[in-house]
Computed example of a mutant assay.
Amino acid sequence: MPYLEINSSHFFHNYHTILETISPNKPQKIAIVLKDNAYGHGILEIANLAKQANIQTAFVKNTQEALSIAPLFNTITILYPSQNAPDFKTALKTPNLYFCAPSLESLQNYPQHTSIELKIDSGMHRNGISKTDLNTAFDLIKKRNLHLKGIFTHNGFGDDVNSAFYTQNMEFLAIKQEALKLCQHYGILRPRFHSLSSSGAMRASQFDANLPQELQDDLYRVGIAFYGYLCSDFQNPPLKPIAALFANKISTLKLKKGSNIGYSGMGILEQDSIVSTYDIGYGDGFFRLRENMQLHSAEGFRILPRASMDCISILTDAPKVCIFNDVRSLAKAFDTIPYEILAHLHAYIPRIVV
């Protein structure tokens, strides 16, 4: 069975790099994003590493993820809660869980005393209420006896060299100023504010730190940087990928030059070779290699097209092969980003922390 090896020393290296870059004097502002099985790395494994680093705040996708790690953090925000989830009522009764409210309708649907974080659209136009609906939202929160724990947005331009990133920062600043006035009007305690993910926090933490205390973000939501990557071309902090994917040999053949390998014979040997199959394929969430793709394992062994559902063919007879220890080359080959390669890996693949 394939397995993912998680390098704990790389995780702690990344944590200290993030801390020194973003918030060296306030470690409590560093929150970890664990959604989608910790970007494919294993939510329980990464949550326990985060606990060892004394990270107090986490963000997850759904109630199932939140409940699985509830004892490990002071607060956990559920970004995409569903009231149809079988464990939704259990989550509501768990005091350190907060629920994202991305619309006025969601405010009307949550039961009284639910702890919520209100999401505002600051220009990405994906999820969140309009700034013009902020007053209506506060009115609903007060009338329905909801507990406003946070107000946040997502600056979706952290990886882009253009003015949109700075425009969104200024828009959220205006939202915070308006929210504080509404808090005073409705007698609501100041909620926590947050807006920046990995790349954005690397760029704007100093801008934020120079604001008056009450207008500063209280958290930075760091996701992909914890796992060793950034997706911008202009930021190069010394992060280390924490995951290496290994596959084990199934069988080996000695084949002649010109032999065809796999479905439709798309893998063609250029010389007499030893070819082995290994126990990972697109059924395990590993992307499907196609004809004419030139991919190699971390050791440099050629991976032959096409990939099958449960196995791939590689020019070696090694008992196990490291498919990747840095996913960027694969992401480039498949014309995507590291997130997608990593998050596709199925949860049943064992995650081993070393």
Rank of each mutant, 00 (worst) to 15 (best):
H113K: 12
I76P: 02
L107S: 06
C183L: 08
K93L: 10
I151F: 04
S195P: 00
Y166C: 08
D159T: 14
T277L: 08
G285P: 08
F152C: 09
I151T: 07
A58I: 04
I129G: 00
I268Y: 06
E214D: 13
T167G: 00
L189K: 14
K149T: 08
A85M: 11
G40R: 01
D279W: 12
G123I: 05
S259W: 05
T77G: 04
E20D: 14
F88I: 05
N14P: 04
Q108T: 11
G258W: 10
E291M: 14
D335G: 02
L134D: 09
G267N: 09
T316V: 10
Y39A: 03
T21W: 14
F207P: 09
H16A: 10
K249H: 08
N169W: 06
H346E: 12
F165C: 12
A91L: 07
I116W: 02
N7K: 15
F334R: 06
N109M: 09
I274K: 08
P102G: 01
Y339L: 13
N25K: 14
A53T: 08
D217V: 11
S329W: 07
N236V: 11
G158L: 07
G262L: 04
E270R: 14
T21Q: 15
I250E: 09
I352D: 05
F12I: 01
L180H: 08
S23T: 12
I175G: 05
N162L: 10
G42Y: 02
I175E: 04
T94N: 10
M202N: 11
L44K: 13
G42L: 01
D279M: 10
S130V: 00
P95D: 11
D121H: 04
F234M: 05
I188W: 07
A244R: 13
F226H: 13
K93M: 12
S195V: 10
V321S: 03
K35Y: 03
L104W: 07
A307Q: 07
N325E: 13
I18L: 05
C100W: 00
S68P: 07
D87K: 12
I224L: 15
I69D: 07
L189Y: 09
D272Q: 08
S205D: 02
K181V: 10
P27L: 11
T77V: 13
N25W: 03
A66D: 05
K131N: 08
E171Q: 14
S82C: 05
K93V: 00
L44P: 00
C322V: 09
I323A: 05
G262K: 03
P102Y: 04
S163P: 01
I129N: 00
Q64H: 12
G123C: 06
S122F: 00
N260G: 04
T21L: 14
D317R: 03
K240R: 15
A209G: 09
K35L: 02
I78A: 03
D310K: 13
D121C: 04
D217N: 12
E117W: 09
F324I: 06
N145S: 14
G200K: 02
K131S: 14
C311P: 00
E299F: 01
Q112S: 15
L239C: 08
N127Y: 13
S329V: 10
P305Y: 06
L134T: 06
F301P: 03
Q52P: 03
F88R: 03
